[in-house]
């Protein structure tokens, strides 16, 4: 980890987080599924035909895999920070092999503890927000609040 520590004291409401780019390749999705379920039966997450039969454009990235990416967006932005909460809405599906942009914006700072809240987004190349949500991150503080 090379990024410097980000302190609660240095954050302002309105600060941008990221963006970072992420594309989940089909093999990466399969690797994740192996860790998640260990089941190699075809599903909407792993198999094109199954996905298409369910009305999807292709196999999709599991929601909890995208949550892990959003988590890493935050912890890479704030090394030493702890993700206290992540709450997302899966508005539209995330397809394999598409470059998506993850970003966030700081929306609140707690008065009584070194915790920030932020909105988080995962959007497709057209700018459509496929996943939206909010997160709470505990950060190191320089002194007592």
């Amino acid at each position: 980890m090379t990024s410097p520590t980000l302190y609660f004291d240095d954050i302002e409401i309105g600060d941008d987080i990221g963006p970072i780019e992420r594309a989940v390749t089909h093999p990466q999705a399969l690797d994740f599924i192996a860790v998640w379920t260990g089941d190699d039966r075809p599903t909407r997450f792993s198999d094109r035909d199954t996905a298409v039969s369910e009305g999807l454009a292709g196999p999709i990235v599991p929601g909890i895999m995208t949550m892990a990416f959003i988590s890493s967006l935050l912890t890479e932005w704030a090394p030493g920070g702890k993700l206290a909460m992540l709450d997302v809405v899966f508005r539209q599906v995330v397809l394999h092999d598409v470059q998506h942009t993850l970003s966030g914006i700081v929306t609140d700072k707690a008065d009584d503890r070194p915790e920030i809240q932020c909105d988080v987004f995962l959007q497709d190349p057209q700018g459509t927000r496929l996943i939206i949500g909010k997160a709470a991150l505990e950060l190191p503080a320089k002194g007592d609040l």
């Binding site: 379920t37 993700l83 992540l86 709450d87 997302v88």
Partner: peptide
């Protein structure tokens, strides 16, 4: 969560189900 044993609540609505959202508090 995918392996959590949930009781059947007998919900009868529609024929498609999707994961709409998830929140984790650590």
């Amino acid at each position: 969560t995918g392996a959590v044993a949930r009781p059947d609540i007998g919900l009868q609505f529609g024929d498609l189900s999707f994961h709409a959202g998830q929140a984790i508090e650590n």
